[in-house]
Design a protein around this nucleic acid. Sequence first.
DNA 1: TGTACATCAGTGAACGCGCGTTCACTGATGTAC
DNA 2: TGTACATCAGTGAACGCGCGTTCACTGATGTAC
Lengths: 191, 191
Amino acid sequence: MRKSREESSKTRAHIVATAAREFRRNGIAATGLNGLMSAAGLTHGGFYKHFSSKEQLVAEACQSIMISVIDALTERTRHEPPAERLAFFVNSYVSKQHRDNAEAGCGFASLGTELSRCSSETRDATSVGYRHLVQTLAGFFPDPDASDVLAKAQTLAVGMSGAIMLARAVGDAELSDQIIENTARTLLAAI
Amino acid sequence: MRKSREESSKTRAHIVATAAREFRRNGIAATGLNGLMSAAGLTHGGFYKHFSSKEQLVAEACQSIMISVIDALTERTRHEPPAERLAFFVNSYVSKQHRDNAEAGCGFASLGTELSRCSSETRDATSVGYRHLVQTLAGFFPDPDASDVLAKAQTLAVGMSGAIMLARAVGDAELSDQIIENTARTLLAAI
DNA sequence: TGTACATCAGTGAACGCGCGTTCACTGATGTAC
DNA sequence: TGTACATCAGTGAACGCGCGTTCACTGATGTAC
């Protein structure tokens, strides 16, 4: 049942998109290819017609995650007044909505501690994604070229990722809410 | 070859300590009980004489990690002048030394994104550990009871964890160094 | 344009392997008299 | 205190299962004449 080239490349993209969702939901190591292909509505045998290994899919899925989430958030700030874009971006990121939707959220916050144990391709994608987030944040500053903006944007980036990661990790729901509220406010006030 | 009660409880503690190391090095999901018991110098069959499941060991190992790392760092600040303890603590945490020694470092930075998928016992241990870190940080502030200290300490906590997580995740070594240097400095200046 | 043939996307069974867990066994430790 | 017996920490083989990966097969798609 050979499929057309167009269909085949759609299938491939669909597998990557499904992986991006499943990895963020369950973690990379805990996501099996069998379940992944089922979630994509396919049988597992066809996987190797598109990818040479799980590792390759991980790299591609991470690449896609890193860029797309930041871009989607940036897109949503477009209609905000320039002076409020930074606050809007940070508050959108450090939010209960983001905390409760890992499968569509930032890869640093959902996969961060697994990434250090991934292939160099995946970790290169992480570098690119991190720089992208930092540059996006820096672009929201009143004077993006000031000498301290890079360091401030980096501090925001790690604080935001850490906040969502920890808000998801703690078992106490009230504490989790508190992390979101306090860090969103304090990060913005401090930077 | 029954062992004495004393020996047995030493064995148990040794398994927990080994797990705490291996989990932080390889991740929880990626650490098998067979390899874990080998690393502890034991055979795998004896595991269930001490624990009812892997999940139980995960909870105990995480409990131990969360508290011990913060306490060890706090201990090292003891001989610093009170006014410099906060900076000393933050700089020790957000350091290349910490980044390069995950197996002995903070559990948030090495296991953070896996914790949200763990048992409620493990996530409760995470709450306790997080509160412990925040309270430790708050105690270093000039006026620990000021109304904004809790929020500031929380912001430091998530920023510190996020910095080490991301410094380990990115493939680019220079960028990683930059994350450490910029965030340690900026966090302290901002808070 | 129509026909014959090669290609290959997707299927589903099978591979070896390591996972978490169980179990019969061993013999030193702990307990009871 | 000494002896007899029960306990149980640790061993190593085995369990079923799901993992990542391979493969023979299928039939629609793509290609060549």
